[in-house]
């Protein structure tokens, strides 16, 4: 019901894009005018992905990363000295070493 992209059963390949849902997921505020241009923009991207989908990839291992390399691992050692004051200089509000944000209540009461 909140899927970002829904294909219309009547008009094949014409996606219905739920811009407001996407905006909420990205914590963006989008007005009517911006909504239309975002919709056009996304429609183009989806069209591109659709053409990529038409390629037969049945026997191809999915590529997780464009670089043909694997991760280097770190030894388990503490190497960082944290200068909290320096990091917190960027924060709008701090107290007693904590970052402060507007009250977030996680319960549905």
């Amino acid at each position: 019901m909140f899927a970002a992209v829904i294909y219309s059963p009547i008009l094949p390949r014409k996606p219905l894009i739920n811009i407001q849902h996407l905006a909420r997921l990205a914590r963006l505020s989008i007005d009517d005018q911006a909504e239309q241009s975002a919709r056009d923009h996304l429609a183009n991207i989806i069209a591109m992905i659709d053409s990529m989908r038409s390629v037969d990839t049945d026997n191809v291992v999915p590529m997780a990363h464009p670089m043909d390399a694997t991760q280097r691992l770190r030894e388990d050692k503490v190497t960082e000295n944290v200068d909290r004051d320096q990091f917190q200089a960027n924060a709008p509000a701090t107290a007693q070493g904590y970052y402060l944000v507007p009250q977030v209540i996680d319960s549905g009461e």
């Binding site: 770190r74 388990d76 050692k77 503490v78 190497t79 960082e80 944290v82 909290r84 990091f87 917190q88 007693q96 070493g97 904590y98 970052y99």
Partner: peptide, 29 residues
């Protein structure tokens, strides 16, 4: 039970003063 974080070299010791063990990687700078 590692000494350092999974993706950074900050310490994982429990009970340290707030934000004294959150380095640039942990903060996502």
């Amino acid at each position: 039970a590692t000494q350092s974080k999974i993706f950074s070299g900050a310490s994982t010791t429990f009970g340290a003063p707030p934000n004294s063990q959150a380095c640039a990687v942990d903060l996502g700078l």
